[in-house]
Design a protein around this nucleic acid. Structure first.
Lengths: 213, 213
DNA sequence: AAAAATATGTGACATTTGCCACAAATGGGT
DNA sequence: ACCCATTTGTGGCAAATGTCACATATTTTT
């Protein structure tokens, strides 16, 4: 338990204390189960402990879009991601079965009298989780702010290969999901990928990608 | 000084201490001055205290894009926004003259032995600033993830009017800047706005916008 | 092992968008 | 009050993108 970012420098016993102090709730979820529904106004922060989840938006016309992929360490909640535009609903759905814990944003940001040491350690750890979230969101904004599908793909590929420090890497999701991530039509993306392959800019077989430029 | 989020529950004297402890640097900037250049690898967190700044990216073809607007309380830095894709440069430029303070990400996340009370208060305050940043980025992702210019505009307008709890509101920037924000061509956006006006969906005069749907 | 569901790949066609060029309006600064 | 820079507004045209429709892998479930 100690190696997970949320629990850094926190012992199991201290975590027990905190659960009482902050009203922490921990739950398991099965695939496709609804973990959280924005608009319920529960004002909670959720943290993915294991498994994975997706934040999806369904607008008034019924279009589904994936706003975020959450892996262990991922955080969500109204205070961390303003959402509810008029009619469309935003939900967090379980993808890979796993555990999620919830704590109140208020309890975290308001200094409490007792157990203040626990408190500050938890805030420190939450700080790194939220900072990581900001990084991921920044990356996505960088990709989405490109004007064309080609530029979006090149930006995303460049980032991924920079992370692994190799020109080749494996996509963390399917090509269909990649189309969602860059917010483009799947078949339009496929067409562009074909062109890019033909021009010798990238090699794509399955989820293996290599930048050859 | 106490009302600014970064300094909540921190007195001027404590702030003096912290500046020594964390090696905080504070500086003033004139309009158009370069505040920060990613890729210098200084690994600092910057916080806008007053004035405003923009985070801009110039890609290898020379295209300029605004990634973020920073107002007082806005934070930036490599650890908070992964950036440097291959050749293109990302910089923070001063817009409205003001002050910025810098502190080391390491000092913030590593528990220090002395002055631990200062430390945890600062982390708490940084937590709220980074959480706010995550919120802003989430909003932008929500807008950018819409497929068409019209949907982007409607999403953005809906968010703004939801904030003010009114159907009318004032744009925080020019229409040109709005085009940058939604990452669309300005004239294409104008064309779409004209159509929307003609259909009676919105009223736009200057920076005044009203949703009439 | 078969069946069902999901993902990949491709093409034709309509629409949207980006790009360019230019005129008018607005806004700061001196 | 003037000038200069920026913003707003508009149109034509080419290129990029989305939509639909379908065939083929691939993966997952039964």
């Amino acid at each position: 338990m100690e190696q997970f970012p949320l629990f850094r420098n926190i012992t199991a016993e201290q975590w027990q204390d905190m659960q009482r102090c902050f009203g922490v709730v921990e739950r398991s979820y099965r695939a496709d189960e609804v973990i959280y529904d924005f608009g319920d106004g529960r004002n909670m922060i959720g943290i993915v402990l294991s498994g994975s989840a997706v934040v999806e938006r369904i607008d008034d016309q019924g279009n589904r879009a994936i706003l975020e992929h959450l892996t262990p360490g991922g955080v969500f909640g109204e205070m961390l991601m303003f959402a509810n535009v008029h009619g469309d609903s935003i939900r967090v759905l379980c993808e890979q079965p796993g555990r999620v814990c919830f704590l109140s944003y208020q309890a975290l940001t308001k200094r409490c009298e007792n157990a203040c040491d626990h408190h500050s350690r938890l805030v420190e750890n939450m700080f790194t989780l939220v900072a990581d979230k900001a990084t991921l969101l920044s990356e996505r904004v960088e990709v989405l702010s490109r004007r064309s599908i080609r530029d979006k793909l090149l930006c995303y590929f460049a980032m991924q290969s920079a992370k692994g420090q190799q020109s080749a890497f494996t996509l963390p999701f399917t090509l269909s999901a990649l189309a969602d991530y860059i917010s483009a039509d799947r078949s339009a993306m496929m067409r562009e990928l074909k062109k890019m392959r033909a021009e010798g800019i990238v090699e794509v077989k399955g989820r293996q990608v290599r930048l050859t430029a």
